[in-house]
Amino acid sequence: MFIKFIKYSIKEYLFAYFSLIFLVVYWFSAHTLPYNALRYPIIISMIVAVLIAANLVNCVVKFRRELIAEREEAAAHEPVRKARWDCVLGLTKKRLGVAVFTLLHPILLPYVGFIPLSLIYLFGVSYFLGIRNYKVMLLYSIAVTAALYGIFELWLGISLPQGILETFL
């Protein structure tokens, strides 16, 4: 039952847990500041705290309803819905893969540089998503990278990280 509750609350109320952690960390970091600087955050934090509590109480209430519904389904010999305990949050392999690729891009950006990393990223992600037309993939990667380089570096004058190409550019 406890595991079921955890799964249900992750699926439905993950943001409430995040808010709770954020609130604790916020106050751990800010409690030493003068009162005048904290007057506004105190009010907002109290509202956040009340709403976290309300969300978690709601979670318990809804969990109980789901449990009752599950027992009724079982008693009536209906197929029991498993989806209510599914806490994967819609994360499929492809979605997770793209998220990881996207996470790696800014981490590697200062070292590899915008141009090579973006070419690899665009080609890699489109390959990962199932495209196998290599000519189009290559053209697409070059076109998007060139367009972004043109807009940000040449038009806006923003210096993009050059990474391994620093000595050449």
Binding site: P106, L122, S126, I131, F152, L160
Partner: peptide
Amino acid sequence: LSYMVPAVMLICIIGSYATRG
């Protein structure tokens, strides 16, 4: 969409970087 998704993600990564460098 397999072409659109990485392009939009890249615009956002670089766009976020570009605001303040």
